[in-house]
């Protein structure tokens, strides 16, 4: 399980761990039923106190991302779909909040932002299209 702690992030370590497990579940890197690192070995590999990992796992268990089998490890839960959707939304919303804050500081109005959004989207799409056409020509 590949987790990185950024100590200068300002986000509590346990939350960094919990978030990264969630992302890995939401993106399918961790699959339902898969066993995740035991508390002790994750604590040792991240160089953090085991209680921090326990707190992260408790939080993940409370929201149903993982479950513990008594004395037999910790696993990714089966029912991920509704949660993964919620999680996907949460991640994008957080990015949008950041964008809105930055845009506000740079003095963009919401209308300007929306039209920029549409512009960028069509730019991306046409780039994708021309790539596709180039590939087809190539074939």
């Amino acid at each position: 399980m590949n987790i990185t702690i950024n100590i200068k992030d300002g986000v509590p370590i346990y939350r960094q761990i919990a978030n990264q497990v969630r992302y890995m579940v939401a993106s399918g890197i961790l699959l339902p039923g898969e066993e995740i690192s035991p508390v002790r070995s994750l604590a040792l590999s991240l160089n953090v106190t085991p209680n921090t990992v326990v707190k992260a796992y408790d939080e993940l268990e409370a929201v149903g991302v993982i479950f513990k089998r008594r004395g037999a490890g910790t696993y990714i839960s089966d029912e991920q779909t509704p949660l993964a959707d919620r999680e996907r939304k949460r991640i994008v919303e957080a990015r949008i909040d950041g964008l809105l804050a930055e845009a506000h500081q740079l003095d963009f109005s919401a209308t300007e932002l929306l039209s920029l959004f549409t512009q960028r989207q069509s730019a991306l799409n046409s780039a994708k299209d021309s790539n596709k056409k180039a590939r087809q020509k190539h074939d």
């Binding site: 508390v39 002790r40 604590a43 040792l44 160089n47 953090v48 106190t49 085991p50």
Partner: peptide, 14 residues
């Protein structure tokens, strides 16, 4: 520092 940190974590966790 990392080694010492790890030794301390080991002391706590194991």
């Amino acid at each position: 520092r990392k080694d010492i940190l790890n030794a301390v974590v080991r002391t706590i966790s194991e």
